[in-house]
Amino acid sequence: MNASTIDFPVQMNRNESNAPGQNMQKPNSPEPEAHAIAPATAFQIGKLSVSFGAHTVLKDVSLDIKARSVTAIIGPSGCGKSTFLRSLNRMHELVPDARMTGTIRLFGENIYGPEIDPVVVRRRVGMVFQKSNPFPTMSISENVTVGLRLNGIRNKGILQERLEKSLKMAALWDEVKDRLNAASTSLSGGQQQRLCIARALAVEPEVILMDEPASALDPLATTKIEELILDLKKDFTIVIVTHNMQQAARISDQTAFFYLGELVEYAATRKIFTNPSVKQTEDYVTGRFG
């Protein structure tokens, strides 16, 4: 599959110049000035409840997620953290009998508004999954640019530029620059996950959701992903679900603790891990239950 076979441009009008994701910078580059004008809140979530059929997964969750920071979602299995993450880009709607009530605003705009197409929401809010899922029939470069080509971008120069930029941001460029046309499946597990991150970055989303992005990786690959996340928060808002307490403590600025579908506590990460206000949170982060 090459660029010329893709002929389904989707109209989009998300290229407003002040969208936070627009100002993509190479990691470690000098502080971009755009920081100053960035709105402080990416998501405002009010009384969010989600159910699948008769099963209620999230109950009355309200919280604000800061822009250009890392927010970790922790909690035991089945507490609704994955569903919470998926409701932020309307991925949970792919389950046929999903229902939600409440509001989610992204930079002030209601993403569940009647006139909002979930496809457009997902272009603004990218996602990286627990298991790396590059498209196996596509090469490394095709994987990165597939989102752009879906947007109708066919200009080789632009594609090439974004390809390089995204791979550099995902800290993968040096490892693959000599074999961009190799099969994506020829990469190692950790590389494949970074390729998926590059693929999400290439469409310049405003927010990146990560659903346990390192849980299937070895410690070395995990470290690379964590360093990458710390770099990316300069330009993107990151919400990460993790099972790994130390990981949440290492990389996040805020932490939300979910239990049985409810938000138990949401505060600065340092506070959650050193001086939580709720007993349940303390029990969980110290390993007394889970």
């Binding site: 989707v10 457009v120 929401v121 997902r122 990218g126 999954f129 590059p134 498209f135 879906l150």
Partner: peptide, 27 residues
Amino acid sequence: VPGLQREAAYALGATRWEVTRIAVLSY
């Protein structure tokens, strides 16, 4: 075809037809 392949395409903002084409048919 693994559900994760479809999810990967949906998460990029693909429409249903695009998901079918890039994630399902090519796989």
